[in-house]
Computed example of a mutant assay.
Amino acid sequence: MGQHSHHDHDEHERHEMHGGHDIHGGDHGHHGHAMGVVDGLPMADRADDRDGLRLDRLHVPLGPALADWPAGLVLRLALQGDVVQEATVERPAVLPSPQPPFWDEPFLLAGAGRRIRQGDAARRLCAAHLDSLGRFFAVAGWGDMTSRTRHARDRALAGATAAELSAAVRPVIRRAERSRTLRWLTSGLGLLPADHARHRGVTGPALAADGDAHGRMLVWLDAVGRSAAAVDRSETLEQGEAVGPRGSVPGAVTPSRALLDVLPGLIEGAEFACARIIVASLDPDLDEFEYAPVAGMAHG
């Protein structure tokens, strides 16, 4: 493909991801991150304090009922201009449930001694990461890829074979990995070095990525490709292999609790428009907070 066609593709992609608007226009702080990802949310309307002007703090709650947002999550932000000065996670009020979280279920059951096929675990892992990617693309404004990704997720959950599922996810993986627009929008956001992640109890993709929102997306894409190819496997999942889509289950802390613990530090100092991308790149599952296993679950 020639240079001109690469340029045309990038321009088409940028317009697709931002409703036909020029995402280079306007004054964007984080190397040009567009503000359209948070349409409809309140913003401070005076100049940034980085210009030497005094700003009032604007307190903004995000969630729990927000499109393409982790169900049940409430995030409270204090803004000065377009910059997040402080972020706090409102701990969810949950009722204990013996029902394993849907995305973690095969891994929790395997960890408790239940016989789980490797293929069934791979299918759930693949679908979980596609579900997370769908939210990530939606928040970034990439509607076409959101639809394609969710279609692939539904194919995974409906029982597609390894060949069928691999064929469905391959173009999604290739297009997201090669997207310069997506890299431009998401690189540098929510930096989480592996040493800090490990210290805070983070496991799974966020630890493996050792970096930013774009890096976490790449880890998801890699896992989608590998797990899609493994959905037909009939061997038993070993207890030591029971690592769910967000990390080790069970662990010292649930994977999503560790993600929520590090989330405020990743958002503080970022532009408001970038906060939702950072959240989407972690995609905590609050269903994990409700799970309270009962004795004998492995034999249920």
Rank of each mutant, 00 (worst) to 15 (best):
W184L: 07
S234L: 11
G251M: 03
A280Y: 13
E235C: 02
A208S: 10
G240L: 00
S281P: 12
P205D: 01
A213Q: 11
E235H: 02
L221V: 03
S281T: 09
H199Q: 15
A229L: 03
E238H: 09
P255Q: 12
D212F: 12
A280T: 15
V249M: 03
D212C: 10
L282Y: 13
E268I: 03
R216W: 05
T254I: 07
G201W: 04
R216L: 01
G215S: 07
R246G: 07
R198S: 13
A275D: 13
A209W: 01
V279E: 12
L189E: 00
R276T: 11
L189Q: 04
A197G: 08
A197T: 11
F272A: 10
E271W: 07
G265P: 03
V249Q: 11
V243W: 07
A229C: 04
A273D: 15
W220P: 00
S227H: 08
I267S: 02
A275T: 15
R226P: 02
I267R: 00
G240A: 03
A258Y: 05
H199L: 14
V279G: 15
A280E: 15
T203P: 07
E235F: 00
R257P: 06
R200I: 06
V279S: 12
L237R: 15
V224R: 10
V219D: 08
G188L: 02
R216N: 08
S227E: 06
L286G: 08
W220R: 08
R216C: 10
R198H: 10
G265S: 09
A280K: 15
R226D: 08
L189S: 04
L260K: 09
L263I: 06
